[in-house]
Amino acid sequence: MNIFRLAGDMTHLMSVLVLLLKIHTIKSCAGISLKTQELYALVFAARYLDIFTHYYSLYNTVMKLIFLGSSFSILWYMKRHKVVRRSYDKDQDTFRHHFLVLPCLVLALLINEKFTFKEVMWTFSIYLEAVAILPQLVLLQRTRNVDNLTGQYVFLLGAYRGLYIINWIYRYFAEPTYSTHWITWISGLLQTLLYADFFYYYINSVKNNVRLQLPA
C-alpha cells in the first residue's frame, strides 16, 4: 500500500461520505443523479463478488463493505425515503444510463484477461465505472448552479481517480511483481479525462471564491 493508493481510497471514501452526509442532514438529494448512483451500486456489486471467497486484508474487506453499504444506502434514500426522494430532480436526470450498461457488458465479454464469470464481471465493473459519472456530469451541466456539497462530491471522485493513476505509475516502478494492466489503466485514464472539464470550472470557482457554474 503506497501513499497515493491510500490517498485515492480516502478521497473516494470522503466523496461517498460527503454525499451521505448531505442527504442525511439536509434531507435533500437535489443535484444528485440517481442514474449515476445506480451505476455505482452495480459497479461495486459486480466488482466485489470475491468479497467472501478471497481474503486480501482487513482493510480491503472493510472498505468493500463500506462502499457496498453506502452505495445501496444512497439508493435507498433517493428511492424510498419519504422526504429525500421528493427533492430528486427527476425531470433533469434523464440520461439513458441503461445504454451504458449493455456496451460495457459486451466489451467485458470481448476484452478481458480471463474468460470466467468472476473475471468478466470484474472487467465489466471496471468499464462501467469509467463512464458511470456521465449522468451526474450531464445533470450538473443542466442545473448550472451547483451547490457546494455536490461540487465537492464530484471533485473528490475525480481526485480519487487521478490519485489511482499516480498509484499505478508508482507500483509499476516500485513493485517487481506488478505487471501491466491495460484494462484498468486505460479505463482509469478515460474516467479521469471525463472529469477534466469539470475540474477546470471547479478550481476556477474555488480560486475566485464564487459558486460553481458550468457552461450550458
Binding site: 493508493r5 481510497d9 473516494h12 470475491d50 478471497h54 486480501y56 486484508s57 480491503n60 472498505m63 468493500k64 462502499f67 470484474w122 489511482y164 498509484n167 507500483r171 513493485e175 511483481t177 506488478y178 505487471s179 494492466h181 484498468t184
Partner: peptide, 10 residues
C-alpha cells in the same frame, strides 16, 4: 496460482 496484483485494489 499466479498473483493478481490489481485485484487488491478497490
Amino acid at each position: 496460482s499466479s498473483p493478481e496484483p490489481t485485484k487488491d485494489e478497490l
